[in-house]
Design a protein around this nucleic acid. Structure first.
Lengths: 230, 230
DNA sequence: ACATCGCCTATTGTTGACAATCTACAGATC
DNA sequence: GATCTGTAGATTGTCAACAATAGGCGATGT
């Protein structure tokens, strides 16, 4: 039978997973602000479920690092410092560089498939830039990079990058006006795509490094060094 | 399930954390074999606790990737394929290379502190090699690399590497005679330490890459390409 | 006024019972 | 004999009640 997709409130299968995904999305969208407390009981009754699955989901997100749990005090949305930003983007650079190598070593077919996906993402991105829809740009930005890493086909790399993507979106959303050089945005991603397609390993690595460095500069520019961003 | 004599009744505060840590240790030591099922209820009664904390610990290890959970069927110790080995060591190479750069960029002091730690590890390793105590060598091998990464001071990198270290130990332990070139072992690590101390970035990267490549060759040599190692 | 002690509340941590669901097996049916 | 079906058992998934604990706040004594 054709499976009719159920609604978001409560589905049959992996409840904790659904809660975690939903919550992560709400956090990176800024519905829960950094430093804000999340109460197990309250969330459970809101979701019409018990504390068990909620607790499981919260624990999951804590392990991912976007929540911090203090014993008998509560769980709170992560607050990011400038140092955190530097850490995150340093690791992102490492992961994406590795993915780039794996892609280029993986054969023409793999590169081609990945590029096809990346092209559509850039296309969507250009549309949203044209109408200045920042809300839609951040997810697309991350989708580009996530797809890039996914193209390498290393499941561990992908799993690592998922957490980094969530943290990056938290960085971006907490920066109010997130993209100072919004016109460069599409161009930069297009450049990465071109270099991947061309197979220019050297320049691709440089482009990734620069992309990350610029991001760190933008994200840390307005704030003091050790200050909390959010 | 085999009676695990190594598990102690737990006290103190973060119960689930303790269970997870102990269980992880038991798994990388091979007390729980790959593919073996781990039963929540049984484990709970062995630990004189309830299913809640045990479940939490198992979920944590599942997220780390050293357990796999199948709904309503049970949780099982991860079985590693040759592809898994390649994945793990590819990511390890990326992480350690990043750590190397961060170390060298972090100043003389940081490098010096790290080298001091690494020296003692190598010293211990040499002792165990001398008496051919393989059981003790694997942890020291991982301790070297974990300390190396820790020296970079990037908490996210460290967290990522902890999981990789656990998976690596699973690779090693499942290979029976794990170190074909046991005499080279100390030498290779010493070489990495020397290059770090010298600050030779180029050669250090090469050494790390070679170290990982050799490991993959050793670990996949005896088995078919897609075969399960354990 | 100030420091100290002890209660109070909010929140997580823990527990045992109960429900849902998957697999395997045995029996019926063709 | 092969295949379908329904039932049993094992295991996780869910739940609500209960316990422990950390930190706040006020009473109390000086």
């Amino acid at each position: 039978m054709a499976a009719p997709e159920g609604l978001f409130v409560l589905e049959g299968r992996p409840t904790a997973q659904l809660i975690a995904d939903q919550l992560r999305e709400q956090i990176v969208q800024g519905i829960f602000r950094p430093g804000e407390q999340i109460n197990e009981s309250v969330l459970a009754s809101q979701l019409r479920t018990s504390r068990g699955p909620v607790r499981e989901a919260l624990q999951r997100l804590s392990q991912e690092g976007i929540l911090v749990s203090r014993r008998n005090r509560g769980v709170f949305v992560l607050e990011l410092s400038a140092d955190d930003v530097r850490e995150i983007y340093a690791v992102r650079e490492a992961v994406e560089s590795t993915a780039a190598d794996a892609l280029l070593d993986g054969g023409q077919e793999q590169v081609k498939d990945t590029c096809r996906i990346l092209r559509t993402v850039i296309s969507d991105m250009a549309k949203q830039v044209a109408v200045s829809d920042w809300q839609a740009i951040a997810p697309l930005d991350m989708q580009f990079h996530t797809s890039f890493v996914a193209g390498a086909g290393n499941t561990r790399l992908i799993r690592i990058y998922e957490t980094l993507a969530a943290e990056s979106r938290m960085c971006i959303l907490n920066l109010a006006v997130a993209y100072p050089r919004i016109d460069d945005l599409v161009q930069e991603h297009q450049n990465i795509l071109d270099l991947l397609e061309k197979g220019d390993r050297e320049e691709l690595h440089k482009a990734i490094t620069q992309h990350m460095q610029k991001a760190v500069e933008d994200l840390t520019a307005a704030r003091g060094d050790k200050e909390i961003i959010a």
